[in-house]
Simulated assay, not measured.
Amino acid sequence: MRIFADRLMEQLSKQLHPTYLIFGNEPLLIQESRQTIQKSAFAQGFEERHRFSIDSSFDWNIVFDCCQAMSLFSARQLIELELPESGVNAAIAKELLAVSELLHNDIILVVIGSKLTKAQENAKWFKTLNNNGCWVNCLTPDIQRLPQFVQTRCRALNLKPDPEAVQLLAQWHEGNLFALTQSLEKLALIYPDGELNLIRLEESLSRHNHFTAFHWVDALLAGKANRAQRIIRQLEAEGVEVVILARTIQKELSQLLSMSQMLKAMPMGKVFDAYKVWQSKRPLYSSALNRLSVTRVSQLLQMLAKIELLAKTQYDQSSWPLLHQLSIEMCQPHVKL
């Protein structure tokens, strides 16, 4: 079965599965999921915890020995396997399948890794472990799911935000769930009645949100001008280099230009397949391709060249205003000719 991380506690209260697969890109959710499983396991008599970091030189016999320690005097065990950032290769997949055959009622296996690809989801090792367990999705909530995530966190701390407060908390802390957790804990101490509104938030919190160049690119592709400007202002305040942002969006614009040419001969789905665009990213590229003409993309690339030249040669003149202009223009709709 598959659940989001915020439903894990509810699931554990009903049943303790023999296997848990914790995968995602959000460190806070991964950390909390591990701790929640540990607490539940210990409460049900699992006295020992073994944590192993898997790499190419790892000795799997250590894990096999733990799994085979079955006697009247053996403690029930929680075994955590941290997979490498590079993912699961053929050798690791083989060993994971071997471990799955050794599991029994005195063992809970927890496998922890980064965001899964479709190929990994369909791999034999993953399906085998998931058939007997629970897949905990620890992906960072996107802008659509984040308000609901904020509300869930607030309820756990007996906080009662109004709709505007929920939206502001989500906006301030997008991309930084650790900061969101800290902010909510702070608010729970400051306001014992739990009532949260815009006035209270603005009085108590500073901006902790952290955006990356990739958040900005996604906003530009989607044509969300206000969001793109908010992100780029934050990046400028944090001292991110203009050249880094220029190079990042240059790659996307060059790809959009090539995609536009291919669209003359094939449908958009085929173009996305050719460029191996993830399903979650396809709406963003679709929006950009439908909004921007080939001429406009070429003009934006020319503007980027000016930005990069300015940033590298004119140290007494800021290139940020021109980058802000590009950000606005890329989000504006243009009739495709």
Results as ranks from 00 to 15, higher is better:
Arg2Gln: 15
Asp6Trp: 12
Asp6Val: 03
Arg7Leu: 02
Met9Arg: 14
Glu10Trp: 01
Leu12Pro: 10
Pro18His: 06
Tyr20Asp: 08
Phe23Val: 07
Leu28Tyr: 05
Leu28Ala: 06
Leu28Trp: 04
Gln31Pro: 01
Glu32Lys: 14
Thr36Gln: 15
Ile37Arg: 02
Ser40Ala: 15
Phe42Arg: 15
Arg49Asp: 01
Ser53Cys: 01
Ser57Phe: 08
Asp65Cys: 00
Ser74Ile: 00
Leu81Asp: 10
Leu83Met: 15
Lys94Ser: 12
Val99Met: 05
Ile112His: 09
Gly113Asp: 06
Ser114His: 13
Ala119Gly: 05
Gln120His: 05
Lys124Asn: 02
Thr128Gly: 02
Leu129Glu: 11
Gly133Gln: 04
Cys134Asn: 07
Thr140Asn: 12
Pro141Arg: 09
Leu146Thr: 04
Gln148Asp: 13
Gln151Phe: 07
Thr152Cys: 02
Arg155Gln: 15
Arg155Cys: 01
Leu168Glu: 12
Leu168His: 04
Leu168Gly: 02
Leu169Ser: 09
Gln171Trp: 03
His173Asn: 15
Glu174Met: 03
Thr181Trp: 01
Leu184Trp: 11
Lys186Asp: 05
Lys186Asn: 05
Leu187Ile: 10
Ala188Gln: 14
Ile190Asp: 03
Tyr191Gln: 12
Leu196Asp: 03
Leu196Cys: 05
Leu196Tyr: 07
Arg200Asn: 07
Leu205Ile: 11
Asn209Trp: 00
Thr212Ser: 15
His215Tyr: 07
His215Gln: 13
Val217Phe: 02
Ala219Phe: 06
Leu220Phe: 00
Ala228Asp: 06
Gln229Val: 09
Arg230Pro: 00
Arg230Gln: 13
Arg230Asn: 08
Ile231Ser: 07
Leu235Asn: 08
Leu235Lys: 07
Ala237Arg: 13
Glu238Gln: 12
Glu238Met: 06
Ile244Val: 14
Ala246Gln: 09
Arg247Ser: 14
Arg247Cys: 00
Thr248Pro: 02
Ser260Ala: 15
Lys270Gly: 08
Val271Glu: 10
Ala274Gln: 14
Ala274Ser: 15
Trp278Arg: 14
Ser280Phe: 11
Tyr285Ala: 06
Ala288Arg: 07
Ser293Met: 10
Thr295Glu: 12
Leu301Pro: 04
Met303Trp: 10
Ala305Trp: 02
Leu309Pro: 00
Gln314Lys: 14
Gln314Ser: 10
Gln317Tyr: 09
Leu322Phe: 01
His324Val: 09
Gln325Val: 00
Gln325Phe: 03
Ser327Trp: 01
Cys331Gln: 01
Gln332Ile: 08
His334Phe: 06
His334Leu: 03
